[in-house]
Computed example of a mutant assay.
Amino acid sequence: MRALTVVPHRAGSLALTEVPDPVPGPGDLLVESIAVGVCGTDREVVSGDYGYAPPGRERLVIGHESLGRVRQAPAGSGFSPGDLVVGLVRYPDPVPCVACAHGEPDMCRNGRYTMRGLKELDGYASEMWSVETHCAVRLDSGLGETGVLLQPASVVAKAWEQIEKIGTRSWFEPRRVLVTGGGPFGMLAALLGVQRGLDVHVFDFVKSGPKPELVADLGATYHTGWIEDVMTALRPDVVVEACGAAEVFTGALSTIGPYGIVCLTGVTPGSRRITVDVGTLNREMVLENAVVIGTIDSNLRHFTAAAGALAVSNRDWLARLISRRVPLHRYADAYDRRENEVKVVLTFG
């Protein structure tokens, strides 16, 4: 079968190659690919900045945002041929650490976890793939192609779970949330905020394109300009940072109000330097009982929660998050960055 592979840490190695068909074990599903999502981390792998091949192998099958249809399922597994499914990304380390032993490899304590399409495990950008039944999540069949949004939705489902757990350190009744960044994570974080009945606001740098309309159609409010001005005007109870810009992160952190929570889901490039008065920032956070947390990846619980959230969402709105669909034979186009895109998807057919 055909699969999209790279030699990790070698720029220009992306290729559509022939690999052996998957041979599912007795507890595995055999799945036919429908689509894989493309994100910034995938582009880092393609550009040679990240990625680890399986032990003893040169090439890695990429793709961690999966969507497929079950072709073969073990008897009594709860899955059936034709089911729409997504595979988990992060797997526990072999020791395992305390977090991995409790089913939370996304919180691995020793860094020996593996990740499909990223770290020592083949991903899902192949015409077929196999996955353990306990590492697969069935989707509402009506979601169709938009089911490829489940993995990023699971990451923000985890973010919201952690926000709510931290909020319960005392009385917690948030009313307003500001999401910074109008990419897939930001849009899906805003969606989950709306589903929680919050007054949702989204900040991004662009003033045109699909993002302002997507936010408006969600029932939220779109903002551009200076993050400090937006923060001062809104005084949000919660900030979900999903753009990874250093000036947005520091602007939100320095202006969060009393008992505010800032949750970081966007990764800031390490090469960007800005000046921050750390002493004043520390003083303000202490005096305001403010909290900043970072979160990345997700586990089965978050995938399941996200599947429920997508199942009750407007299907047309979800479909509009997919800005571009690229067929497998034009795979290189999927990893080009273009202005005003939200989500790019590589399709199999």
Rank of each mutant, 00 (worst) to 15 (best):
R2Q: 11
R2G: 04
T5I: 05
V6T: 02
V7Q: 11
P8A: 06
P8E: 07
H9P: 05
A11W: 02
L16K: 00
L16Q: 02
V19F: 09
D21N: 11
V23Y: 03
P26W: 02
P26N: 03
D28V: 08
L30H: 12
I34G: 01
V36G: 04
G40I: 07
R43I: 08
E44D: 10
E44P: 05
V46K: 02
G48M: 14
G48H: 12
P54W: 09
P54N: 07
R57C: 13
R59N: 04
R59G: 00
S66K: 04
V70P: 12
F79P: 09
P81Y: 04
P92F: 00
A101L: 06
H102E: 15
P105V: 00
G111Y: 04
M115N: 07
G117F: 01
K119D: 11
D122P: 07
Y124K: 03
A125N: 05
S130L: 03
T133E: 09
T133P: 08
H134S: 15
A136P: 02
V137G: 04
V137Y: 04
L139S: 00
E145D: 01
V156G: 04
W160M: 06
Q162E: 15
E164H: 13
K165R: 15
I166H: 14
I166N: 15
P174Q: 10
R176A: 11
R176H: 03
V177R: 07
L178H: 01
G183S: 11
M187T: 10
A190M: 14
A190F: 12
L191I: 14
G193D: 14
R196M: 12
G197P: 08
L198N: 06
V202K: 02
F203M: 08
F203V: 05
D204F: 08
V206F: 11
P210S: 06
K211N: 02
K211P: 09
P212A: 09
L214R: 07
L214F: 13
D217A: 08
L218D: 10
G219K: 12
H223C: 08
H223M: 06
H223P: 13
T224M: 01
W226S: 08
I227W: 10
E228L: 04
D229Y: 08
M231R: 00
A233T: 12
L234V: 06
V239W: 07
V239H: 06
C243T: 13
E247M: 07
F249W: 09
A252L: 03
A252M: 10
P258N: 08
V262R: 08
C263R: 12
C263E: 15
T268P: 09
P269L: 04
R272Y: 13
V278K: 03
V278G: 14
V278P: 10
T280A: 12
L281A: 11
D297A: 13
N299M: 04
L300N: 07
T304Q: 14
A306M: 07
G308E: 14
G308H: 12
V312E: 14
N314R: 14
L318K: 04
R320H: 01
V326M: 00
H329L: 06
R330G: 04
D333E: 15
A334S: 01
E339A: 15
V342K: 03
V344D: 00
T347Y: 03
G349K: 12
